[in-house]
């Protein structure tokens, strides 16, 4: 027995809720960002949570019949139905008097940006009372790394080989969701779990469609050492590849500014999926990252709290 236990005081402080709802033994790859995202999300939301999970890495991570790792009820649904299944769940809960339960649609980028976009748009337009979380690892990882519309310019995937790497920008899912006039949309990053937890708790306090775009690296698909997951994720935000911000009722708030952003080249060189890029490709990507960041700043200037209306 150590001193802390006898005195009841602990010589350490936790910055996240201590309770673990996600159980170990799940089937995520070593260093999986999506597993971290779920662990944090459940810490934020608590046990009164029901998940709809479509085809995505998490359909496997949760474990095969007769097991589950999530620790909360999960309905494994069809690929394109995370939002529509969750809509059904939340309406049933409301009808059965369980307003204390949070319904979460939990999908990958393919199930959100691509095949599930129609159902997501429908649920957003109806303002169904769900939290929709997309954990974005920028490709179809569960089927073995095929490009999705969340795959960034320049990336290798098995369907965008290095000789013909992904051309064109990643779809701006946040702007699509903001265009639906939903009450809350935010980006978050597994490298900033306190921010992620705070945003999910804020989302939980709001009714209607709430959308979280969570950045979740995939060592397998991005070709980096599993130990670098958090470093790469952090760098994505530090170099403005993945800014973290919130849009509440149309009001933009940038949660983090980088006085001197890390060059995008630093981020790219850590991942095998970008190793084929030439200097001019890297410069092009840097120019687009800068442009998108400036655009976001202007959105905050125009539609942020300081804009004053």
């Amino acid at each position: 027995m150590n001193a802390a236990e006898t005195t009841g005081k602990r010589p350490f402080r936790l910055t996240l809720p201590e309770e673990e709802i996600l159980s170990p033994g799940h089937l995520a790859c070593q260093g999986c960002g999506a597993a971290m995202a779920m662990r944090y999300a459940l810490k934020a939301l608590g046990r009164n949570t029901i998940l709809s999970i479509p085809a995505c890495c998490w359909a496997v991570i949760d474990g095969p019949f007769p097991y589950s790792a999530a620790g909360v009820p999960v309905f494994h649904c069809a690929f394109e139905t995370a939002a529509s299944t969750a809509a059904g769940i939340t309406h049933a809960l409301s009808r059965l008097g369980r307003e204390d339960v949070t319904t979460v649609a939990w999908a990958g980028d393919g199930g959100t940006f691509d095949i599930g976009l129609q159902a997501l748009s429908g649920a957003a337009e109806r303002n169904d009372n769900i939290i929709y979380v997309v954990y974005d690892n920028e490709a179809y990882m569960n089927t073995g790394i095929q490009r999705s519309s969340a795959t960034p310019h320049g990336a290798w995937t098995t369907t965008t080989p290095t000789l013909q790497f992904k051309k064109g920008p990643k779809k701006n899912i946040m702007e699509i969701m903001v265009a639906h006039s939903i009450p809350y949309a935010a980006t978050a990053n597994i490298a900033y779990p306190e921010d992620l937890v705070k945003k999910l708790r804020k989302a939980q306090s709001i009714r209607g469609m709430r959308f979280l775009h969570v950045y979740a690296p995939c060592p397998t698909g991005w070709k980096h050492a599993p130990g670098l997951t958090v470093k790469i994720a952090r760098m994505a935000t530090e170099c403005n590849v993945f800014p973290i911000y919130e849009v509440e009722e149309g009001v933009y708030t940038l949660n983090r500014r980088n006085p001197t952003p890390v060059p995008v080249a630093e981020y790219l060189k850590m991942q095998g999926r970008f190793h084929h890029l030439r200097e001019e490709d890297v410069q092009f990507i840097q120019s687009r990252v800068d442009r998108d960041w400036q655009r976001l700043i202007k959105l905050e200037q125009a539609f942020g709290k300081a804009a004053g209306t």
């Binding site: 029901i50 709809s52 309905f75 649904c77 069809a78 394109e80 139905t81 939002a83 529509s84 299944t85 969750a86 809509a87 059904g88 769940i89 309406h91 049933a92 809960l93 009808r95 059965l96 129609q118 159902a119 429908g122």
Partner: peptide, 15 residues
């Protein structure tokens, strides 16, 4: 497609 998906979710939740 969403019609039946929503019914599936709702029925699974006990409605």
């Amino acid at each position: 497609h969403s019609a039946l998906a929503a019914c599936i979710g709702a029925q699974a939740a006990g409605a």
